[in-house]
């Protein structure tokens, strides 16, 4: 693995921003997209999990629930 958790978290954040208001993304959507983007030899599910945790813990994104759990931008931003 050579991509860093930061890189992946940042790429995830960009993706959430891009889809904001268009489509709610699940943790798995982000994970699949990152594996595609960086390549299987660069990131795996575990690293994506860490990246999501960082993304949420940093407050840049938050979980929401509408019939399923999604990762979204925090409310008023």
């Amino acid at each position: 693995m050579s991509a860093s958790v930061e890189d992946v978290a940042n790429a995830m954040y960009e993706m959430v921003k891009e889809y904001h208001g268009k489509k709610n993304l699940k943790a798995l959507d982000l994970t699949k997209a990152m594996i595609q983007k960086f390549g299987e030899d660069q990131v795996d599910k575990k690293l994506c999990k860490q990246a999501i945790r960082q993304l949420i813990d940093s407050g840049k994104c938050t979980y929401s629930y509408v019939g399923g759990s999604y990762i979204v931008l925090p409310p008023e931003s």
Binding site: I56, T62, Y63, Y65
Partner: peptide
Amino acid sequence: KHGGIVGVMGYGGGVIG
């Protein structure tokens, strides 16, 4: 009404808005 986004920091579960 439906819940929306509430929870404790870092968790995505455990709180029903």
